[in-house]
Design a protein around this nucleic acid. Structure first.
Lengths: 337, 337
DNA sequence: ATCTGCAATTCAAACGTTTGCATTTAAATC
DNA sequence: GATTTAAATGCAAACGTTTGAATTGCAGAT
């Protein structure tokens, strides 16, 4: 078996507790002993057993991430790798590890969080999205477990730590950008209707319209999943009507690409016939032809800041919940006019 | 504190060991007792403490992944999310979790693996790439710890489990595809020279050339890091010479996009003046204009199969090392002629 | 009535740490 | 030289499980 604290102790002729204190660099151990013990550790190739340690210390230097469905399509969407990248950099800075589980259904996800938390495998959790009435959030609050939400909560607003963009204002200014080019008929394509981010962006869109007294028209909206295919489908719906939109605000680049594909197929010129503005500013937004006007929401930063906040929370669980706002930036390219 | 096995035992009037055996669904416990205990567990909200369990059972239902550098650029490259997606689906099937660490330098990476393994935090490890003389691989072999390499090892070929494409043949046939269009001057842009994958693809490239008696010319090769910028730089070098290439084999789509950007800037028409074939077939290969001819190496599959293999290995450590080959497929698009 | 055998359960040790408290040792003070 | 003090270290319990061996209870065989 592997070498334990006892082996080191025996070699050095000290007690296990002394070795433990050397590992922890406890000032009550003499420098002489420390040196001796450290040499022995090196020699024997000692590495502390993490399970034993967390068992008693009740901490794990690990943060948990719960990913929506493990099936084919997650991780396919560039949002997740990018946000995890941010988390991962922050974790690396603090010498934390990242534990990832996936759950297909919401039940599975709840089960997964529960396993992580009650199994004492993580010190805190980062949630990657929130829905209307999210049971995971209520559970975490009930358990009083440190967590940070990326995105905004639907309820318990002042009980949860969350980092998000100001999506209302972002959508508003993106819409205004289109209105400035005199578009009168602007459509909106959002994600699933019970995602908070969808609500926010729809709200911003409405606010912009009302500023210029254009009535909100439900027939000009569509709500789809985050994929190219769905963007394609949404166009069939939106352009099936008499008075076609001349501009579209799309909640995601990936969807936008589906949108553009469909529009091109139907012979529309971009941006002459239809302008498209989307969100996220993935690298494909720049690479695609025409390049996409997109709101950069700084996904990396969302992840990084969430992790930073979580570390604080782990240290001091009694901290007041805080809302951290990450700036956005409209990047204008060829797809809008 | 949280509810333990002892609490459940007390409530049911049985011993902790009985509860433990109920959790493990041991047949030596009567159905009656099982039912009673399970109800109590439900009632009290019992969840086993994972650390305590792995401490004695010496297993963790977790696999470790070590990512190269946590700095800005990893996870930025689409290879990693995609391969992790494969791993993650396999893990989900087996109810395994994934533990991720990052290390900037090779030393940090070694340290990270060591921490995972000796800290008893994972049952097995998946390596995402291998270099010439990789010290991590020799360590893992020395420790006799279950691991699977994605890519091919440089040494210890018959001691390691690895899953990879046949990169030699893949590069060969990609080059032949170009040769069939009568290209005489084909350049090669690879990744870092001490990556095994670079060696293999270079080898395939050479083999194809020799088939048609074109001499290998080192001036027609460049070796760069995996980014657009570096692709751009490579072109400055390769087109600085008298007799310019008419075709380029590039080891990665991301690099290829940098290559295309540079070529377009210098006024070359793609594919009329220069043909480009690359590897990986990321979604951007399809979206870019012109769309990229690319060798699809089935990255998802690499991850999935590696994880599958690892599970077998964890079950039976004495299994003979195996090499799993994942098929590739040349996808011809607009960038080559 | 005693013994055997079996099913169901309990006992107790072990896993490798951490940590409050007790003990030892040696120097400092009176 | 006895006593106090401080520093350095050791002791032992605790963390929450698992598991081989021991125990109990009871039906059936002798």
């Amino acid at each position: 078996m592997s070498v334990t604290i006892k082996d080191v102790a025996k070699v050095c002729g000290v007690s296990p507790s002394t070795v433990s204190r050397v590992v922890a660099d406890n000032p009550r151990i003499s420098l002489e002993t420390k040196k001796k013990v450290r040499e022995a550790m090196e020699e024997l190739g000692y590495h502390p057993n993490f399970n034993a340690r967390s068992l008693v210390a009740n901490s794990t230097a690990t943060i948990g991430i719960i990913m929506p469905r493990a099936t084919e399509d997650v991780f396919l969407h560039p949002f997740f790798p990018e946000v995890i990248r941010g988390i991962s950099v922050a974790a690396h800075e603090k010498d934390y590890m990242i534990l990832i589980t996936t759950g297909s259904t919401q039940e599975e996800q709840l089960e997964a969080v529960s396993k992580m938390i009650h199994g004492k495998r993580v010190d805190g959790v980062i949630l990657l999205s929130s829905q209307e009435n999210d049971p995971i959030i209520s559970m975490l609050i009930k358990w009083d477990f440190p967590f940070v939400l990326i995105g905004s909560p639907d309820q318990y607003i002042d009980q949860v730590n969350y980092v998000d963009n100001d999506n209302i204002t972002a959508a508003k200014s993106a819409t205004l950008h289109l209105l400035q080019s005199d578009h009168q008929r602007i459509a909106f394509i959002g994600g699933s209707k019970d995602l908070v981010v969808t609500k926010h962006r729809l709200e911003g869109y409405k606010q912009a319209l009302s500023l210029v007294d254009i009535p909100y028209d439900e027939a000009m909206t569509a709500f789809v999943a985050f994929s190219k295919e769905e963007g394609y489908v949404a166009i069939q719906q939106l352009f099936y009507v008499e008075k076609k939109p001349t501009a579209i605000l799309v909640t995601d680049d990936l969807i936008a690409i589906g949108v553009l594909t469909a529009l091109k197929e139907q012979g529309y010129k971009i941006p002459e016939d239809v302008s498209v503005v989307s969100f996220n500013n993935f690298s494909m937004a720049e690479l695609y032809n025409p390049s996409l006007t997109s709101v950069d929401i700084s996904i990396y930063s969302l992840g990084y800041k969430a992790a930073k906040r979580l570390f604080l929370l782990i240290k001091d669980a009694s901290m007041n919940p805080q809302h951290i706002e990450v700036p956005y930036k409209l990047v204008i390219r060829q797809s809008s006019k």
